[in-house]
Computed example of a mutant assay.
Amino acid sequence: MAAQGLVHGPVGESCLHLCVDMQRLFAPGGPWPVPWAERVLPAIEELVASHPRQTLFTRFVPAARPGEAPGAWARYYRRWASVTLSNIDPNLVELMPSLARFVPPAKLVDKRVYSPWTEGQLDALLAGSDIDTLLITGGETDVCVLATVLGAIDRGFRVVLVTDAVCSSADQTHDALMELYRSRFSEQVEAVSSAEVLASWY
């Protein structure tokens, strides 16, 4: 089991808050609702408000039309044809309103797969910067957050996962992934509360 708290010290100017896919697409009433999203939104909003210039939001952008995606993603979007861009209100791709107001100065990176690292935009944005710590929030714990965490670990970033600011549509796999982050990645993931982060982020 990972040690609790910010075991590697406070976070500061070299920290980027990476908020994953908190979009209208996943809000209650959206086509892919994540019921917990509203529960974690206040914690995320407080973190963003404290350091908007050190925040980057990712947005998951569905395929344009059913079947229009590479490889197995084409099958995925035949299954989810109703959520392709040609079949939804394009505004559903936007951030939830209480977070969208922070852009700018917060930044946006769009992605078409689970990981924000695959398409290269995030790597390009961080290249040459002083960022060495990623504070990760958003959804879903067991899908896009997982892909984000693993990519950050592979690149050698200090990873701080905010436990009350991540959400999933499935309680069982959320709980399983939180155990995974705390145990199997105990040397590379610090799982802490938003209050702990806010108290130490200078």
Results as ranks from 00 to 15, higher is better:
184 R>T: 04
36 W>D: 15
77 Y>M: 12
105 P>A: 00
149 V>P: 15
174 H>C: 05
147 A>Q: 14
89 D>L: 11
50 S>I: 03
196 E>D: 13
61 V>K: 11
60 F>G: 07
82 S>M: 11
80 W>Q: 13
116 P>I: 13
142 D>F: 01
40 V>A: 06
124 A>H: 11
110 D>F: 08
75 R>Y: 08
22 M>R: 03
151 G>D: 05
148 T>D: 00
104 P>L: 00
136 I>V: 15
19 C>N: 09
102 F>E: 02
156 G>L: 08
40 V>C: 04
122 L>F: 12
160 V>P: 15
142 D>T: 15
168 S>I: 10
105 P>C: 01
81 A>K: 14
65 R>M: 06
66 P>I: 04
143 V>G: 01
149 V>E: 08
16 L>R: 02
156 G>I: 10
161 L>K: 06
76 Y>N: 09
7 V>H: 07
70 P>D: 01
73 W>M: 10
182 R>Y: 03
183 S>Q: 10
23 Q>R: 08
112 R>D: 02
175 D>S: 11
120 G>L: 09
134 L>P: 13
125 L>F: 11
23 Q>F: 00
29 G>I: 12
81 A>L: 13
145 V>E: 01
75 R>Q: 12
91 N>M: 08
163 T>K: 11
20 V>Y: 07
173 T>E: 02
43 A>Q: 02
157 F>M: 08
64 A>H: 08
26 F>S: 07
61 V>S: 01
110 D>P: 04
77 Y>D: 07
9 G>D: 06
187 E>Q: 15
196 E>S: 13
157 F>T: 05
192 V>M: 09
14 S>K: 10
137 T>M: 07
39 R>S: 10
34 V>P: 12
46 E>D: 06
136 I>A: 05
63 A>D: 09
28 P>Y: 03
61 V>W: 04
88 I>P: 00
27 A>F: 04
138 G>H: 10
82 S>E: 14
60 F>P: 01
119 E>Q: 14
51 H>P: 01
50 S>M: 10
